[in-house]
Every structure is written in C-alpha cells, then in structure tokens.
C-alpha cells in the first residue's frame, strides 16, 4: 500500500513539475476525477510546490562586483591567515627560536651526546638473531635543526602576513 502511495506521489510530483509522460498523464487525470483522496493529496503537494516556487533570486549589495574586482589579486579570503593570528604566530616562533639560541649559546645541550640503545625486552627482539644497533644522539645538532625549521616557519608566516599583503596592496594601488 505504501509503495503504491509513493508511486502515485511520484506521478503527482512529476505532474506538478510538468514532466509526466503524456500516456501516464491521461491515466492520472482519470484517477484524479474518480478519487477524492488522490485529489486531496495533489492539493497538499501543490501547496508545497507553489510556496517553494515563489522563492526569488536574492540580490547582493550594489558594491558586490567592485569588491570582487578589488580583491581579485588577493588570495582567497577564507584561506588567508588573519593579520592578528599571523603576527601572534610569528611572535611565538620568534620567542621560541630566541630561547633555543640562548640555551644553545649557554651550552645547555652540549651534554646531550651519546647513543640510544634499544631495550632488549623489545617484543621484536625474540625474532631477531642479532642485537639491535645503537642510535647516535646529538642534542646540539637536533636543536640546531629545530632552530633552522623555526626560522623557515617564521619566514613563511612573515611572507604570508606582512610581505604578501603589502605587495598586493602596492600592486592594487598602481592599477
């Protein structure tokens, strides 16, 4: 019964959309004349159809086109890092780098030198015939790499937050 109702509903909706086959259309019209319930269902669906069809195109503000054209050479609004967040990130990266350099200069990381042996109780150990090699650890080198990565990150943030917007504004002003 439910399936039968759904099929009829589909036909009624196709009828409202003007997409019902002419052969089915004639049959549906006959059914509508004889069935009060079907006619009532058509009225329900028609009410929904009419209200939805009355929705109109929305108009944006009058400055819409101008604003798109002005921002055309900027990177996507949603993907760009906001200046405030960018500067905060830049400050954080700079402070971290300075702290690492101070500690590095003071020789704090000089003592972190040696090798790291993997524990013999490692689950994989029982399957291996040979002992696992020791890993050489150089604390000073690791911190130097970390400082280098921080500097690269700081440059990228500086570029995105300060340089790019500045040069884009200059280019825009020249147009």
């Amino acid at each position: 019964m439910e399936k039968f109702t759904k099929v009829l509903d589909d036909q009624l909706l196709d009828y409202l959309d003007g997409k019902l086959d002419p052969s089915k259309l004639a049959l549906l019209k006959t059914q509508l004349e004889s069935s009060h319930a079907l006619k009532a269902r058509l009225d329900e669906l028609r009410l929904v159809h009419r209200v939805l069809a009355s929705s109109k195109l929305e108009s944006p503000s009058t400055t819409f086109v101008n604003r798109v054209m002005v921002n055309l050479n900027k990177t996507s609004l949603s993907s760009s890092l906001s200046p405030k967040n960018g500067l905060l990130l830049l400050m954080g990266v700079t402070v971290a780098t300075v702290m690492l350099l101070v500690l590095l200069g003071a020789g704090v990381f000089d003592q972190f030198k040696g090798s790291l042996s993997l524990p013999e109780t490692l689950p994989a150990q029982k399957y291996l015939q040979e002992s696992l090699p020791a890993i050489a650890v150089n604390g000073k080198l690791m911190i130097n790499i970390l400082v280098g990565l921080n500097l690269v990150l700081a440059f990228l943030v500086l570029d995105k937050t300060v340089f790019k917007p500045y040069f884009q504004r200059r280019a825009g002003a020249q147009l």
Partner: peptide, 29 residues
C-alpha cells in the same frame, strides 16, 4: 552571475552578510 551565486550562498548560510562574503570568495577562487 552575482545574483545566482549569492542566492546559492544565502540558501546555504541563511545569513546575508556571510553569504555575500562567501559568494565573493567563490568568484575570487
């Protein structure tokens, strides 16, 4: 195409200010 784009954004965001920004961003992309 501004009205069509804006209407799509309004239907999704249901906020005209946000919709305008999103539609503009869409055109820029």
């Amino acid at each position: 195409y501004k009205s069509y784009a804006f209407t799509i954004a309004v239907k999704i965001l249901e906020n005209r200010g946000e919709a305008e920004e999103a539609a503009q961003d869409g055109f820029i992309k």
